[in-house]
Amino acid sequence: MRYGFFPGCAYKTAAGYRESVEALNRALAIQLVEIPDWNCCGATAVFSINSSVALVLSGRLLALADLHGFDEIITVCNACYTTLRKAIHMMEHHPELITEINKHLKTETLQLKRLLPVRHYLDVLANDIPEMRWRKVKQSKSDSDLRVAAYYGCQLTRPWKDQGQPERPDVLEQFLERLGVTVIEHSAKTLCCGASHMIPYAKDCAPLVSRIIREVRKKNGNIIATICPMCQFNLDAGQGRLNIPGTPIAFFTQIVGLALGIDSKDLGIDKLLVPMYKISDNKE
């Protein structure tokens, strides 16, 4: 399987996402090759303005991945994930759209010939890596006081309904438990983080962040594992406006790295806004 990695625009500046993904790739010998000259998927913004442009953006990325011989596109961002799947879904139902897209791509000597599957890196880690390899990498159990609340946000399970239950998925919990991480059950795992509305409407979005953090603390979690740069950013930076004890918001890859015994320096943990040493046991 050749994984074509689509980092997306928010990956590079995300709090230690790149560091931790690269550390895991090294430790587990995962070949994640960046799709050369990838472009932005357009996210919610472009589809809101003009779907032709949105489709051409996804089409270009799919054509590039195919041209370079990849079998699958791997994303690390929920928005990239659902935007690409949405475009593919439209193309599958209206094949004439592919002809339209190709008219544009032709000027760049690109052609969209097939629609590659799009998957999230979580899916790769949880399902593609043989148990043996995890066992080989994992150091003897490190004592940890982390009680992790998995947080999926919206656009992994919805609207698809094929990544576990759209409102109460558990792939991340099951995966983390396999690695010996303590996870907690809670009911905020697919609530909205505010997405890009956080920029103009930070005040309106504060209650959205607050209800997620409060729920996690009430259920005795002391750290949240995210799978999307925007979710991570909104929950991490959004706490600055709230008057509640700080709860660190990590990427799931950082938590996996810690569970494997990888040094926190190699996981970019110092880049979180609410620092990890803030883990406190005071329940609300």
Binding site: C9, D37, N50, S51, S52, V56, R60
Partner: peptide, 23 residues
């Protein structure tokens, strides 16, 4: 940030003026 040769995607501007009617 940008792709290698942003000029190459000037076709996005023609897609912009076309807009496939909202499917």
């Amino acid at each position: 940030q940008s792709i290698k040769e942003p000029k190459r995607i000037s076709y996005l501007k023609s897609a912009d003026s076309e807009r496939t009617e909202t499917k």
